[in-house]
């Protein structure tokens, strides 16, 4: 009996690993693994996607041994603060709100957001055209936004929870729509394809990936491509506030990847277009 307890305690202690701050030869990176083509999971059970390739690239530049940790989206920032990993690379946009609790590296990619609906839906009549920068609203973009609002009035709109898309729906559409928050982008896409929600707001790249699949081929974008404002200034690496040395390392590595063109390569490979920045 005693022996059993000792082995149990020894086992528990063994699984407790200790790491020291300031030594960045080993970096743990948190990602979601449910947001293709940024970061998805393949049938071999391995993480894959543009950001996964980018992690390998950046870590080689930083001479660090990196370990990827899968973490559900809605706990991804608290788990960073808790020390479950040291950096987030999960298609996370750089926003004011998040900057209050964590730091971001420079942005490495930027992809506009758009609403999508079923082709058979009456909302599809709006068509997909134009671009709106929420930071610089001129007459033309205000008009585009207004017709978007008018079309969506009374609709049920789905978003992934805790995202910039959720913020946009809350701030800009407010009570004129019914909002539903999903745990993952993939579940949002599933519910759009079966018609449980009238429209979904997400970044175009991940929805385009779904549109290639059997279930997603009946989905189209509507309205303008959206960026700026609540959507933030591109996607960057999320870091704890006090890890400024790690921030510098990431910035330098991203500079390097941008300079020799590999940054663009990773995104072109997964998105079919260059969304790097």
């Amino acid at each position: 009996m005693k022996k059993y307890f000792l082995t149990l305690i020894a086992f528990l202690l063994m699984t407790i690993s200790a790491a020291y701050a300031g030594d960045w030869s080993k970096i743990k990176i948190g990602t979601e693994g449910a947001y293709p083509p940024w970061n998805g999971t393949n049938a071999a059970g391995e993480l894959e996607g543009a950001e996964i390739d980018l992690v390998r690239d950046l870590c080689a530049r930083m001479n660090a041994e990196c370990e990827l940790v899968a973490q559900d989206w809605d706990g991804i920032i608290p788990a960073l603060q808790n020390g479950k990993y040291d950096a987030i690379m999960a298609g996370m946009s750089i926003t004011e709100e998040r900057m209050q609790v964590i730091n971001f590296s420079q942005g490495y990619a930027n992809e506009p957001a758009s609403f999508s609906v079923l082709k058979s839906s009456s909302l599809a009549a709006l068509g997909h055209s134009g671009k709106v920068n929420m930071d610089a609203l001129d007459g033309k973009s205000k008009k585009l936004l207004n017709s978007l609002k008018k079309t969506l009035k009374g609709a049920t709109v789905g978003v992934q929870g805790s995202t910039t898309h959720e913020n946009f729906v809350k701030q800009v559409l407010g009570d004129s729509v019914t909002m539903k928050s999903y745990d993952t982008q993939e579940n949002l896409e599933l519910d759009l394809s079966v018609g449980r929600i009238d429209a979904a707001l997400s970044d175009q790249g991940s929805m385009e990936k779904f549109m290639e699949s059997d279930k997603g081929k009946k989905i189209v974008f509507i309205g303008p491509g959206l960026g700026g404002g609540p959507f933030g200034g591109g996607v960057g690496v999320g870091l704890r506030k006090n890890d400024t040395d790690l921030l510098k390392m990431f910035n330098k590595a991203i500079d390097g990847a941008r300079a020799d063109g590999t940054l663009a390569e990773h995104f072109t490979k997964w998105f079919g277009k260059d969304i790097s920045m």
Partner: peptide, 22 residues
């Protein structure tokens, strides 16, 4: 709360997304 219903836990998750203090 895992299927988009806003019960006590659902709202708790929503607030955590804003305050980051689970």
């Amino acid at each position: 709360s895992t299927i988009t219903i806003m019960d006590i836990t659902g709202i708790a998750r929503l607030i955590i997304a804003k305050t980051f203090s689970p």
